[in-house]
Design a protein around this nucleic acid. Structure first.
Length: 594
RNA sequence: GGUUCAGUAGCUCAGCUGGAUAGAGCAACGGCCUUCUAAGCCGUAGGUCGCAGGUUCGAAUCCUGCCUGAAUCACCA
């Protein structure tokens, strides 16, 4: 419709004023609710061609469109705004188009699409996942689905940070205090089990430092003198040297962590096509760095550390390899990027990583380009904001975190309590009920996080943030469940599969629904272009709200006119499908009943 | 100090590639279940869009300066 209008306007300006307008400046928008009409053309940009008043120009163009466009019934002019009224024929055309395409499979036409990698999650193996990871996972998963819907061939990847001093700390604490226990012995989930020893290390280390400081050392001297830290470093050195006992311990503890992560990922409903491990890719990173050294792209300092000079890019020099030859963050990210390209020959790669890493990814891209990798132009840091608590930033060392498993469990129990109170699922088995409660709890959490613009820091208040009413996931699910309920009952009505003979007269709610539904494809494209799932979330909320108003104001199955009833059933059907598809893009499942 | 991002109702957030009288939800108050699921619908109240300039027919939106907050500029990953 919009495209037709743009052509109409172009023709109008040519015909009326003898000039070719710059259509990129055209402003066409939804008519605001306070005014009469459906689509509004802002005519101010056209005054330069008409050399007439805004009102006169709008009237001229309105008349022209009325003549040539059979979908427009009437128009009115308010100041410089030309409000066009769509007729039933135009709207039914949109509706019929939706009936054709509105249920199509998002995977149907991406066989030849651009190969696109999305990296997300990126956990460290020394502690369990927390709320920050949840935001990361949800954004990554949703982004993958949105890009898929836009024709990309998407591969979801994860880089597991499984090596380094942090895991050595957990290993050391387990050796010192673990008494040979395992997650199976203690009944503690593997990632929490290992995380417990990381905390024990930090506590013991802090005590050691305090003792040294009270003995008269400065904190810096104390840190250098720390035996615990020295032992942890020794473990790291042994690990890099391939010491068998150390490597076996490392493997055992990591395997515990992975069991735990897998469980959390399963609960969250996210998955990956390929998982990379830093313990593999850092080696590749080292190779790349010696190659860069040979090429003169990097340089070695006297102590043996390797650097790259970035002052030409308004940045400082950046360390690539420590003096003792061990790897840093950048080392392994260079290796991972190259391995990924070797594996996938991707056109695009999105790194879903918090905005605290903005600098890192800027540097990563520059270095890859200097190394001559042309594909480096296709990598992009999907930078998102932090999740803050009412008391400020989450700090795992101080225990001020929201644990992912705890949070998920809370969501499920809250959903159960709420549902039991309403008592609508009394005829379901316990297992069925639980499955639905999980869907609802997850939807509440996922929607809460995804409805916020990813770039922004957001606030999570454990006591107040998770709601099940209003602009929430459960509200949208509820709308869907209502629609499904109507459609189940619609089976009893005759003529369900027949044709709608005469286009029905459309009421305001039906018109609004059709217009909203007609925008869905543009919304998906917008979300993909802006890399912003919240656009989908806000759209689906508007849609659900609009449907609830329609549902409240008009009877669907109680409508006596067969043609109108059939139309409303189908409108409900397509609304439900669109809600479901939109929520799918957010990674949120819909219950048939709730 | 440099760079980047943010500041909209009591709270959480939309709106930001310039368009009409700035929107939702929560919280507060008041209505609507004998009728397709009340996790719903309707209404009341709530705003100097951080501040000051500028650009223009028009600025929450663009530009400049300032204020406030966050992140980063690390041999922690």
């Amino acid at each position: 419709m919009e495209k037709t209008l743009i052509r109409n306007i172009e023709d109008a300006v040519k015909g009326l004023y003898g000039q070719v307008p710059d259509i990129s400046k055209l402003q066409i928008q939804e008519t605001r609710k306070e005014f009469e009409g459906d689509i509004t053309v802002v005519v101010f940009p056209l005054l330069q061609y008409s050399k007439k008043s805004p009102e006169q120009t709008a009237t001229d163009i309105g008349n022209y469109i009325l003549d040539v466009n059979p979908g427009i019934d009437s128009f009115n002019v308010v100041k410089g705004f030309l409000n066009l009224r769509l007729n039933k024929r135009a709207l039914m055309q949109v509706f019929n188009g939706l009936m054709q395409s509105g249920k199509k499979d998002f995977f149907s036409d991406n066989a030849g699409g651009a190969v696109t990698l999305v990296e997300y999650s990126s956990p460290n193996t020394n502690k369990p996942l927390h709320l920050g990871h949840i935001r990361n996972n949800l954004l990554g998963y949703s982004l993958s689905r949105i890009l898929t819907a836009c024709g990309h061939r998407v591969y979801k990847t994860n880089i597991v940070n499984d090596r380094g001093i942090h895991i050595c700390k957990s290993m050391l604490a387990w050796k010192l205090f673990g008494e040979g226990k395992t997650p199976a012995d203690t009944g503690i989930k593997g990632d929490h089990f290992v995380g417990k020893y990381y905390v024990e290390f930090e506590n013991a280390y802090r005590k050691e430092i305090e003792k040294l400081v009270s003995g008269g050392l400065t904190p810096e001297e104390a840190a250098e003198r720390s035996e615990l830290m020295a032992e942890a470093r020794e473990l790291l050195r042994k690990w890099e040297a391939g010491d068998r006992e150390t490597v076996e311990l490392w493997q055992m503890m990591n395997s515990w962590v992975y069991e735990g992560f897998d469980a959390t990922y399963r609960e969250l409903g996210v998955d990956f096509d390929k998982i990379y491990y830093e313990s593999d890719t850092y080696k590749k990173g080292r190779e790349i760095i010696s190659y860069g050294l040979k090429k003169g792209l990097f340089y070695k300092k006297d102590d043996g550390s390797v650097w790259v000079e970035l002052s030409g890019e308004d940045l400082d020099e950046k360390l690539l390899l420590r003096a003792d030859g061990t790897a840093v963050y950048m080392t392994q990210d260079l290796g991972t990027a190259v391995e990924r390209y070797n594996d996938f020959s991707f056109e695009r790669q999105y790194y879903v990583v918090g905005n605290e890493q903005n600098h890192h990814f800027k540097v990563l891209k520059i270095i890859l380009k200097r190394l001559g990798y042309e594909w480096a132009g296709g990598i992009h840091h999907f930078s998102y904001g932090m999740v803050n608590l009412p008391e400020g930033r989450m700090k795992s060392r101080e225990g001020k975190i929201v644990d992912a498993d705890d949070l998920l469990a809370t969501m499920f129990t809250t959903a159960s309590e709420m549902s039991d109170e309403l008592g609508k699922l009394h005829d379901f088995s316990r297992e069925e009920k639980e499955r639905i409660h999980r869907k609802i709890g997850l939807a509440a959490l996922k929607y809460f996080i995804l409805k916020v613009d990813p770039r922004k820091n957001m606030l999570f208040n454990p006591r107040e943030s998770i709601d099940f009413n209003g602009n929430t996931g459960p509200f949208i699910q509820y709308t869907y469940a209502r629609i499904r309920s109507v459609l189940r009952k619609a089976g009893e009505y005759e003529g369900k599969d027949g044709d709608i003979h005469d286009d029905p007269e459309l009421n305001e709610k039906e018109k609004e629904l059709i217009k909203l539904l007609g925008r869905f494809d543009d919304i998906i494209a917008d979300a993909a272009e802006m890399l912003n799932p919240s656009i989908i979330a806000n759209y689906v909320y508007d849609l659900a709200r609009e449907f609830n108003q329609f549902y409240h104001d008009y009877s669907i199955l109680g409508e006596e006119d067969v043609s109108v009833r059939l139309f409303r059933i189908r409108l409900s059907d397509i609304s439900g499908e669109t809600i479901k598809r939109a929520m799918w893009l957010l990674g949120i499942d819909m219950p048939e009943r709730m």
